[in-house]
């Protein structure tokens, strides 16, 4: 930019500098019924390609299961979607209008993508109630959280969620004292409080009893429709249970999609058989 035009800009009272405009994510647009586009994504760490030319589309309201052996790139894929890792190349769009690669984690979270970690991460020094309160959707800037007070509607919603995840008896308990399964549930509850459009769930049933697994599956299925849900899981029984007959299952292998389709179709795919059984 030349000096003169810069000067003109400075003297122009009505000029609005781009950095002064609050960065506002465009509205989510799912007119093509696709919520998440991942195209040609590649990430490498020191020459090792964790994700290799990955292409995947998640429909609005879909429940998608992703399976794959260790090192297939499942966690890295979630890192990319949530803004933790920047890919070397490729594009990731949330709906038609939101470019995920230009946003950082909080912005992506506020745009409507929630994530549940492999290891349950709840805030151990806060109570169950406070954990959920923090997760509740709302304005997240410093001034508003300083002045935030719960209104009756919000309290009601909190209670409802607590009931859903079955922690009524532990509302005031510090989250650190919950059992492993309870923590998993609390985390799912926190995800729900965020009211995300897309839920990324990393190994939700690790360390759960069979009973709990069934309940989790039930919950996730009930969520689909209102939210899109992406579940990464190792446990084949659980995936079979979730995917049912007609939901799509994606198999990742060495950072790219090996096979995609219904559970029965995927299971018969010779490539999948080779990867899972051939070794």
């Amino acid at each position: 930019m030349s000096i003169i035009s810069t000067l003109e800009q400075i003297t122009d009272r009505h000029h609005v500098y781009p950095f002064l405009v609050p960065a506002q994510a465009p509205k989510l647009d799912v007119s093509h019924n696709v919520l998440l586009y991942l195209e040609d994504i590649t990430v490498s760490f020191d020459g090792f390609k964790a994700i290799n030319n990955l292409n995947m589309y998640i429909n609005d309201g879909e429940l998608r299961c992703i399976i794959g052996p260790n090192g297939a790139g499942k966690t890295t894929m979630m890192d990319i979607i949530t803004g933790k890792t920047q890919p070397d190349s490729g594009s990731a769009w949330f709906g038609q209008t939101i470019n995920l690669l230009e946003m950082d984690e909080p912005a992506i979270a506020q745009a409507g993508i929630g994530r549940k970690f492999q290891k349950p991460t709840v805030f151990e020094e806060l109570s169950v109630w406070e954990n959920l309160e923090l997760a509740m959707a709302g304005n997240r800037n410093v001034w508003s959280i300083l002045n935030a007070r719960l209104n009756s509607e919000q309290s009601a919603m909190l209670l409802e969620t607590i009931e859903l995840i079955g922690l009524q008896a532990n509302t005031q308990m510090l989250a650190g004292r919950l059992s492993h399964g309870q923590k998993q549930w609390l985390e799912i509850g926190m995800l729900l409080m965020q009211k995300p459009r897309l839920l990324l769930v990393d190994e939700p049933v690790a360390g759960m009893t069979h009973q709990e697994m069934d309940r989790t599956a039930e919950l996730l299925i009930s969520l689909a429709g209102r939210h899109s849900v992406v579940v990464v899981e190792h446990d084949m029984d659980f995936v079979r249970n979730l995917a049912g007959k007609d939901r799509t299952v994606t198999v990742l292998h060495q950072g790219s999609v090996l096979s995609e389709g219904t559970m029965s179709k995927v299971q018969q795919d010779p490539k999948v058989v080779e990867v899972y059984l051939g070794e």
Partner: peptide, 10 residues
């Protein structure tokens, strides 16, 4: 990082 994924500008 959890707080970040929850949408807070840490």
């Amino acid at each position: 990082s959890r707080a970040r994924f929850m949408g807070y500008r840490v």
